[in-house]
Design a binder for these strands. Structure first.
Lengths: 347, 347
DNA sequence: CTGTTAGCGCCTTCAG
DNA sequence: CTGAAGGCGCTAACAG
């Protein structure tokens, strides 16, 4: 019941193992007589021969596997999309993904994880976090070509890909500005994550483009959750000069903003326009009206990571000059942005 | 820069490869003099020796890899949880997951995918769908021990694990009944998925437990989306004898039900109690009040699948008698169920 | 065109 | 207790 080997094929077709190998691999430059060729092929089919990629890898020093190392259990629904993106890119090149989630941020766990992958002779490694972060990747990971996914490093010379948070939030806020809104609130977070500073930067850039002065009092800090969104929006919307548009740190915050608006009798988008960030499927379109939001490009980042890795020159652990890719966060327009109320448009 | 091999260790420590191997593997029954033992260990450490698992596998016929084959790209946020569950169980046993998503339901793709995993000598295979389904697994997949994840098969003799849809919906509906509700609507789907019939069965079972007659007119069929939930709830709630509780086919439907309730001026849970299914994180708790719902146990199913596989006796593709596991769907209580309005409690 | 000879790195008898 | 020999399945020179 165990699988047929090359030897079996060779014996059945009465040629040497080498010849069988040549035929089956269509070695370029090795011309083989049509007759023997067919004999081998027939035998292979008859025995249902399948190469043992493991043995092949032992010989060629290429396993055809890409290690996907991640630092902690993802409770986010994003994990799947990154993994699938990476897997698709790998599959396109005939490689498979070998998965390892260390389940913690302990650096030693990372080292051990990378080691486990290396022992399996993975050709390259993707080091992923499930949340845009600044990390120090395990050192041994760089023994093979590697790239950082949804993370970047300051010291290490590795390519990386992260969402273009600035561009995404700028596009989101510009969407509001283009609709005529001039007083725009921002419910953000005080979590110490790169996204915080970057999304704020995008917010300010958009205002600059439209020559709208930045009003610090319109920026409120809250937990990046529905509850925080609710509180933040309540704060903003109960003012006399309430904003007509609110930009949210993420979609979950927007959920709370919707609640607050409803409670205050403001309808979206007639009385209030809202823009989110993340495009968490099933959140942004579970709201009514659908939430206009900047999408985190997880699938694309996963794909980019593996593609970049695969394009890298063999045996050179790190490229001469690492690439730091900012993946665009496309704006998904649903129904939460409308023209600014007339009164508000006047200076 | 390439890695040290066993040979290098042997040479450095002045013993034979065999001895080095014995030391490093702590072969039982092979007692080695403490002195040489330490010499080998020191050399190994000095050279930072790491075994080549690939070569080891070639010899031992065990790769330490478990294939994770799935039939289509998951756009669901569930994929990640199943994969992580499987990966965790694998890691517990020192195995790694080799991922392959065929990206389609074409049976031939499945065969090819299984073949690719087999060529890499995976020890076992998990065949997963990202949605409870009845499938015909690729035949070649059964060449190694396999189990079906979130899927089951009628003909094939394979173990499988699926959510206990009946139990979950029964618990959800009983939650409503226990709160005193007697007129309970059910907004379901006409999609041809196992969940449809099973969740309806659970609904009916719960009624039976409480001796409440099943009223067909309270079951409305809609798209399993927020929009469908909205329409279904509108239908139910505008009746004179409107239900005081609604059980939803899934959480997304519940989103629509919330909208309808709001529009009709009914507040949850004072005027209307709602129960969902799936516990899609970020949906169920993005609603206000939080949605009480039966959780799909994706992580647990993934974990169970791999554990079961690992417990299976080596080299026996399928167990004498396959196990079909129903994984409980625990009820997650949030704030959407309240006591039935007093008037409604009277007969 | 085809076969021989050598391993890849490791484990496993089986002798010393 | 230790080592020599053989082979897992496959490929890569290099000869014929």
């Amino acid at each position: 019941m165990s699988r047929a080997t090359l030897k079996d094929v060779a014996e059945l077709s009465g040629v040497s193992i080498t010849t069988a190998s040549h035929v089956l691999n269509e070695v370029p430059g090795k011309r083989i007589k049509l007759q023997t060729r067919e004999r081998v092929l027939r035998a292979a089919k008859e025995l249902m021969y399948r190469p043992n990629e493991l043995a092949r890898g032992l010989r060629t020093k290429r396993s055809g596997m890409i290690g996907f190392l991640s630092d902690r259990i993802s409770t986010t629904p994003f994990a799947g999309r990154m993994i699938i993106g990476a897997q698709d890119a790998a599959a396109d090149a005939g490689s498979l993904l070998l998965l390892l989630n260390t389940g913690g941020m302990d650096p030693e766990l990372g080292e051990r994880g990378a080691e486990a992958l290396l022992e399996r002779q993975v050709d390259r490694i993707v080091y992923a976090t499930f949340y845009h972060q600044v990390v120090t990747p395990p050192a041994n990971l760089l023994k093979v070509p590697a790239v950082l996914l949804d993370a970047r490093s300051v010291q290490a010379r590795v390519s990386s890909v992260v969402p273009d948070e600035v561009g995404g939030s700028r596009a989101g806020v510009e969407e509001l500005l283009a609709a005529g809104h001039r007083r725009i609130g921002f419910v953000t977070t005080d979590d110490d994550v790169p996204a915080r500073g970057l999304r704020l930067a995008g917010f300010r850039q958009a205002l600059e483009v439209y020559d709208v002065p930045f009003d610090e009092t319109l920026v409120v800090v809250q937990d990046p959750q529905p509850r925080g969104g609710y509180l933040g929006a309540m704060d903003l919307l109960r003012r006399d000069d309430r904003p007509t548009g609110i930009f949210c740190f993420n979609d979950r915050v927007a959920v709370g903003v919707y609640q607050a608006a409803r409670e205050l009798g403001l309808s979206i988008p007639q009385d209030l326009s809202v823009v989110g960030f993340d495009d968490q499927e099933l959140v942004s379109d579970s709201l009514w009206p659908g939430l206009t939001t900047a999408a985190l490009p997880h699938y694309e980042m996963g794909r980019w990571a593996v593609r970049t890795l695969l394009a890298q020159i063999e045996a050179r652990p790190s490229p001469a000059t690492p690439v730091h890719k900012l993946m665009p966060c496309p704006l998904v327009r649903r129904g939460s942005v409308g023209p600014a109320p007339f009164a508000a448009r006047l200076p």
